[in-house]
Design a protein around this nucleic acid. Sequence first.
RNA 1: GCUUGCGUGGUGUAGUGGCCCAUCAUAAAGGAUUCUCAUUCCUUUGACCCGGGUUCGAAUCCCGGCGCGAGCACCA
Length: 472
Amino acid sequence: MPELREAQQGKVVLRFAPNPNGPLSFGHARGIVINGQYAERYGGELILRFDDTDTVVKPPLPEAYSSIVEEATWLLGRAPDRVVIASDRIPVYYEHAERMLQGGGGYVCTCSAEAFRELRVAQTPCPCRDADAEINMERWRMMLDGRFAQGEAVVRVRTGMDLPNPALRDWPALRIQDTTAAPHPRPEVGSTYRVWPLLDFQSAVEDHLQGVTHIIRGKDLMDSTRKQSLLYEHFGWTYPETMYWGRVKVHEWGGFSTSAMRADIEAGTYEGWDDPRLPTIAALRRRGIQAEALRAFWLELAITQKDIAVPLATLYSHNTSVVDANAHRLAFVRDPVPLTLHNAPEEATLVAFPDDAERDVRRLDLSRGEVLIEAEDLQDPAPFRLKDLGDVEKEDGALHLTSLERSDSRRILHWTTPDATEAVLMVVNDGHIHNVKGRLEPHDLPSGAVVQLERIGYAILLDDHRLLMMHE
RNA sequence: GCUUGCGUGGUGUAGUGGCCCAUCAUAAAGGAUUCUCAUUCCUUUGACCCGGGUUCGAAUCCCGGCGCGAGCACCA
């Protein structure tokens, strides 16, 4: 990661500002990880800010406020330094709007959205643009007290109708939302306000108020930077240093939008935000993807403006290296075939952690003289060895233990004992969950433990009878 | 259409005029170690979008083309 421009040790303030209309998704992790990393590197601060100023198009999800703080903390390995909620600070934005109107930096526009769109294309000022501060203040009061209804008036920033970039021409800063009919989802806010700032105004003012020094965000917000810089000129402020990253697509996931996921969850298509098919932080976490792996992943992608498509294998590779040494080995026998084992000892001792044999062992009870093996492994007539037990020969449908020591280089199979529990291994593939039935070796690991199923891959224990596959 | 931004191996990434017959990671193939088809280690394959120009010298600078993306919402 490159150095930040104009960064002074101990004086860097960054922020990550999601819309709490759902919990964090995979892509959000980038904002948290990168901003958090820089805050740490320069001994600065990371602000988590909820940009929840829309009650109509993307209404906030009440639970998201707490879940996002919790998820961000998990990802960072520490809590954000400050948490700011935009909907708590509406009066502050009002003050700045009034200052802008009084200083002639903006005006109240009563043109319809469609009408203004035409004026913008034609580079023609609208009639409202000429109004003096007094008239603007009166219209502003009309917005506040309800004499204007939703859609009838908007506060615009005066930037210039002849700007070459149409996106910047007298952009809208605050609008009216009918919060009586559709209250803000936070009960403490509810129907208190009817005039709400739009992202560019709210974000710009708040960045200044919070002393943000550096903004790192998606390049889709490039024009936002330009818009906001024009607003900063009105106020005589200096805009923070800004960097951008491009779009990231994950090959295995299509395009997921927060609102679409929310609708699908409500419709019952998915079991919740942590459904393993979804690209949310909650789902990845439930699948056993470690915060450290996510951090390594995003740091490796760094902050190019290129639009990239990455395979999940890259993330999995990071996760394997984080998890492997501490993943307890366990056998999961799919399509199990019971076979009598002659000559068996009373008990077998298998390796739990290959890198650290002292740490723990697995003891399996062989007193019943029977083992379970995968049917597929039995297709091959070649002799084999039961891992950590001994070489066997197959005779009359039964196994004979012939040697505890390895006598040759025959293949080695995983196996378990008849007291293994019936279990289901959930594997996500192609956006579908496949339930693989099998028998799971007896163990005393808690739910949530990350294990490596021998010859299969890494998985997480959900409960006594369910496992969720992480990756190979 | 207007306005922006980006183009290095399969996928990501380093590289800001000579240290680059281009870095690292990942993927793939092969091999070694290993009582797992895991881990670890080694090897191989493989890239500077195209065309001009500037220069003794360009992945790096300039121009043009092509390709891909984003903004032009009273969403964030």
